[in-house]
């Protein structure tokens, strides 16, 4: 794609499944996930890169999908909240969020879970400070974060099973 194009066909691995779609160059990754693939677990919160509700993991790296173009995900592997549960069982982080009351309205939860998964993938035994720093880019206006931090810490300690 060395000459400018208005749109192109992209192929993206989302939660282990390859999706091919024609997308406009202006399409944001979050809209590709929600509107083209109907994966509405990834939320649009602030749409200005502050709140983190749209956090997904692209090639192993946590990013805010409202600040990345869908065409930039061509050939990439994307993990969204829909990929966490498997075989009808919640992911341990999801179970912990439920057990520890780590959500109220739930709007920030998909992004919070993906940031937490990214943390534990890279640092299986985080300190409380490391947990708080890892979710710094995810805003929750309900919980006050205490139960979210406890849920992530309990998951890291293996105290929660999915």
């Amino acid at each position: 794609m060395t000459e400018p194009v208005r749109g192109t066909r992209i192929s993206v691995d989302v939660n282990g499944e390859i999706h091919e779609r024609d997308v406009e160059a202006r399409r944001l990754l979050v809209h590709f996930l929600r509107d083209d693939l109907d994966l509405t677990g990834t939320h649009v919160g602030c749409d200005t890169g502050n709140c983190g509700a749209c956090t997904v993991i692209v090639d192993g790296v946590a990013v805010k999908s409202c600040m990345m173009l869908a065409v930039q995900a061509d050939g990439a592997s994307v993990e969204t909240v829909e990929g966490l549960a498997g075989n009808g069982e919640l992911h341990p982080l999801q179970q912990a969020f439920s057990s520890f009351h780590a959500l109220q309205c739930g709007y920030c939860t998909p992004g919070m879970l993906m940031s937490a998964k990214h943390l534990l993938d890279n640092n299986p035994e985080p300190t409380e400070g490391e947990i708080r720093r890892a979710i710094q880019g995810n805003i929750c206006r309900c919980t006050g974060y205490v139960n979210i931090v406890e849920a992530i810490a309990a998951t890291a300690r293996g105290e929660v099973s999915g």
Binding site: M1, T2, P4, V5, R6, A25, L69, V71
Partner: peptide, 19 residues
């Protein structure tokens, strides 16, 4: 939504400067 825009992915720095 972003306004319509064209997109190019150069394969070298020289090509980026040309674009």
């Amino acid at each position: 939504l972003l306004a319509p825009v064209e997109y190019a992915r150069p394969s070298s720095v020289a090509e980026a400067v040309r674009l």
